[in-house]
């Protein structure tokens, strides 16, 4: 694994273990490298930022995006998730694509 962390240098072959680590455990203890990556992803500004809407408590969530403008609606997408880990994994891949242009395998 690369010892320094350069966001412009992200690629799925070099960081395959980070991707795997996230997939296995999206919330909780992470390696320092993965935590850095997640800080970048989760710290993005609020415009068109992924979030969830509770569709049925503890059972179903709708993927959505915040507007970045207080008062403007949170916009739902057509995607629904029955567990939070699936939603985290989906959003991770979206954010990876946004950062690197690279599409990750499911």
């Amino acid at each position: 694994m690369a010892s320094s962390f350069d966001i412009s240098d992200l690629c799925s072959t070099k960081f395959a273990d980070l991707i795997e680590e996230f997939k296995e455990n999206p919330v909780g203890h992470h390696s320092p490298q993965l935590q850095r990556l997640l800080n970048v992803m989760r710290g993005a500004p609020m415009g068109k930022k992924h979030c969830l809407i509770v569709s049925e408590s503890n059972k179903e969530w709708i993927l959505a995006k915040t507007s970045g403008i207080p008062g403007e609606p949170v916009k739902p997408t057509n995607l629904r998730f029955q567990n939070l880990a699936d939603a985290e994994w989906y959003v991770f891949r979206e954010r990876w694509k946004h950062l690197t242009g690279e599409k990750l395998q499911k």
Binding site: N39, G43, M46, C51, L52, P70
Partner: peptide
């Protein structure tokens, strides 16, 4: 904070869930 500021996802260490 959940709709307005990025710290919510950073501090929560996960996606923010919004209730109605």
């Amino acid at each position: 904070m959940g709709t307005d500021v990025p710290v919510a996802q950073l501090l929560g260490g996960r996606l923010v869930e919004h209730e109605r």
